[in-house]
Design a protein around this nucleic acid. Structure first.
Lengths: 242, 242
DNA sequence: CGGGTCGTTGACTCTCATCAACCCTCGTGG
DNA sequence: CCACGAGGGTTGATGAGAGTCAACGACCCG
């Protein structure tokens, strides 16, 4: 139980990146009822259309949010990292709109919907931050519309890599000049609206340019500035805006 | 002033489509301070990066939310209709992340950010609905990612038309078996990640199939069911989910 | 009557999808 | 200890869908 009480640290960290919390607000967040659970790679954390009574907070590992077309094609809508509420939407909406799937082995904290809503309105400072978090999620989704709608394959992939790097860095998860990229080429394709084959060829072309080096499931960045320029990447869409 | 007091009716209507409000909550919404203003077609309502002190509620007309790439290509991120808060994000975030542009002559109500936040936390029932509204906006954005990422031109355009029809219908704005579509072919392209030329050819092909008929700036639907099927359209992403 | 915006059409190009084969690595079980 | 299979990555050949460029037409409004 006292373990449970500390398990929500990643959530507090994430909220405090947006604005600092009073100690009473912080305590209230940490006091949210929850249950910790591990989920295997590839398994679903949430299913579209399901009635969700508890929201899932990612304590470690990676997950993807996605929808499937009638032809069975998958489109990844966002990547969740440690500290993300993968389905905070479900706190207010009746049913989940997206699938969420574990990209790696994952540990989640399950928090009852009602407890989140009650917290939000009992502690407006926390409520504002939770609402802001959903707004930033929406901003990321909109940037993805731009990415798949108006950028070519090369730029799309670079942009995705810049986003993942920046988000990991601001969450304190990126190593020196590098970051984890635990997506197969097929999953990269599902995230960028491309096929795995074309992702493969594009990655090879990019690798030869020497901006970054791929290693197993991670990326070492050689020339970050050049990457951002060529990716048409402007990190303000990830922030509350100064 | 009493005119002002009734101007926010479209907002109340929209919120009450999500859940009914107590009369005190309804009064509180209608009592929001605001200023009514008209904006010409083509003018910007909000500019990306601007510090916004008042959020804009669309009282009549059409607007598009959009971002521009470094190459100057526009991607439309969503279409706003009567009753939509075009930049409710700005109530909590410091700066606007998207441009919002008037697609037609437009009337907006400008509501101070702080008044919206205060209302949300003083009247939790209203706060939940406002938050839900931003979540549905996000759900629409995610569906647009799927649309531009994983559907072909024909399906993208059909899907957009289905969405606009359903949203107008549920807002009571659609006429019998038809709806307004005040977008030029170039704007349709910007919304679907296509070029105006290709939109033109695709519309012609679609028109010959007889599911709908285009007239000036509106569309008459002949076979709605067939449209929805071929558009891969499932309206649940527009709703709170039963 | 002139100019502007929007729609239409044709010819051509190119990015990316498709299909199919083969490779490597790793984990597992006989 | 080796055989096997599965998942992921790589490669080549081919083709389709959508972009580009350029020109012209229709319509509206001043």
């Amino acid at each position: 139980m006292s373990d449970n009480h500390t398990a929500l640290g990643p959530l507090v960290d994430k909220l405090e990146r947006l604005a600092s919390l009073s100690s009473s607000d912080r305590e209230a967040v940490l006091a949210l009822p929850h249950e910790v659970r591990t989920i295997e790679q590839g398994h679903h954390i949430v299913r579209q259309g399901a009635k969700v009574e508890r929201c899932s907070l990612l304590l470690s590992g990676w997950a993807s949010r996605q929808r499937i077309t009638v032809h069975g094609n998958r489109q990844i809508l966002g990547i969740c990292i440690t500290g993300d509420f993968v389905d905070l939407q479900s706190a207010l909406l009746e049913t989940a709109q997206d699938d969420v799937q574990a990209l790696s082995a994952v540990v989640v904290a399950l928090v009852p919907r009602q407890a989140i809503v009650d917290l939000a309105f009992a502690h407006p400072a926390v409520g504002k931050l939770l609402w802001m978090d959903t707004l930033l999620d929406a901003s990321i989704a909109r940037e993805w519309v731009v990415n798949v709608g108006r950028r070519d394959a090369r730029t799309r992939i670079l942009h995705l890599m810049c986003e993942l790097y920046e988000r990991q860095r601001s969450a304190g998860l990126a190593r020196e000049g590098g970051f984890e990229l635990p997506l197969s080429q097929e999953q990269l394709g599902d995230a960028t609206g491309l096929t795995a084959v074309h992702v493969n060829r594009t990655l090879q072309a990019l690798g030869q340019e020497g901006m970054f080096k791929r290693e197993r499931r991670s990326v070492r960045i050689v020339d970050l500035h050049s990457m951002k320029v060529q990716a048409d990447f402007d990190a303000t869409y990830l922030t509350i805006g100064a």
